[in-house]
């Protein structure tokens, strides 16, 4: 736990000590806007009659919170090894590398959630979004969502540990694909039937739908509407348990192999 908290502190310093505190707070509030700006413009101009704005907006911002975790985990391997050249020291410390990654990503997740909360304070009244939160589901969903994203992030981090030239574009491509399929931006019923079915099994889909319902208090479309909110919570919990366990095993394996192959302190300057 001490190592986890220390890693969270390191994460906070990396995220915030590049500027003054008040500038960073503005940055924190402004950063998520990029994730939903397109949604507001596109649904505002073309989709007013569809009534899908709340669906897309909630979906996009909650996907954004997950993307921060897995991107941070994958990128921190590259950042610590190539940029700050501190990966070898992290491995020498008494904290396990998995704990370090989880701690850093937890800070990133909390920062992303804080940004979402700040933005919902103006989005809900201005855009008349339905907002009848079920705090129990929201908190449980937020915790389980972190585990889902951390599981995927740990798996990606293990890949990055074992490859020295892999670009973060791979993470962008992978999670870009999941973004399309997860139904964050539009109901996957728009896809051909096969892809619509696959969309139900993308790990992020139930989390995003759970958070949508927990925040809006409504079932906004027919996507996953056959499942009750508690069933969705159960499915997110199952995904979280499986993904986090698999991610943990992979990153432990990746750490051992990377040390054996001498990949911990390799710099390529690519």
């Amino acid at each position: 736990m001490k190592g986890f908290l220390a890693s969270m502190y390191v994460g906070l310093q990396i995220e915030s000590n590049w500027t003054k505190k008040w500038v960073w707070l503005l940055y924190l509030a402004a950063y998520p806007i990029g994730s939903f700006l397109a949604v507001i413009i596109l649904y505002g101009v073309f989709g007013q009659k569809t009534g899908l704005l709340p669906y897309a907006l909630y979906g996009t911002i909650f996907y954004y919170s997950l993307s921060m975790v897995f991107f941070d985990m994958a990128f921190s391997v590259h950042d610590d090894r190539e940029h700050y050249q501190t990966l070898k020291y992290i491995f020498l410390s008494s904290t396990s590398y998995r704990t370090y990654l989880c701690g850093r990503a937890a800070t990133r997740y909390l920062i992303a959630l804080a940004g979402i909360v700040i933005n919902l304070c103006w989005l809900v009244p201005v855009l008349h979004l339905p907002f009848h939160p079920n705090w129990g589901y929201l908190l449980a969903g937020a915790f389980l969502g972190y585990l889902v994203a951390a599981g995927l992030g740990l798996a990606m981090a293990s890949v990055f540990l074992l490859t020295i030239k892999l670009d973060v574009d791979v993470v962008d491509a992978l999670f870009g694909g999941m973004f399309v399929l997860s139904g964050a931006l539009f109901p996957p019923t728009a896809f051909p039937a096969v892809f619509a079915k696959i969309a139900e099994f993308v790990p992020m889909s139930p989390f995003i739908e759970l958070m949508r319902r927990a925040a809006s208090g409504q079932v906004l479309t027919s996507f996953l509407s056959g499942m009750s909110t508690s069933q969705l919570l159960g499915r997110v919990a199952l995904s979280a348990a499986i993904l986090f366990a698999v991610g943990s095993v992979l990153v432990s394996f990746g750490s051992r192999q990377a040390q054996r192959k001498g990949y911990i302190d390799v710099t390529t300057a690519f």
């Binding site: 596109l42 073309f46 989709g47 569809t50 574009d169 870009g176 694909g177 973004f179 399309v180 896809f191």
Partner: peptide, 16 residues
């Protein structure tokens, strides 16, 4: 990555 982003918006327009 570019293709997936493009796919997202093509299907979004179809939805709209």
């Amino acid at each position: 990555g570019g293709f997936f982003t493009m796919t997202t918006y093509v299907y979004l327009y179809r939805t709209l």
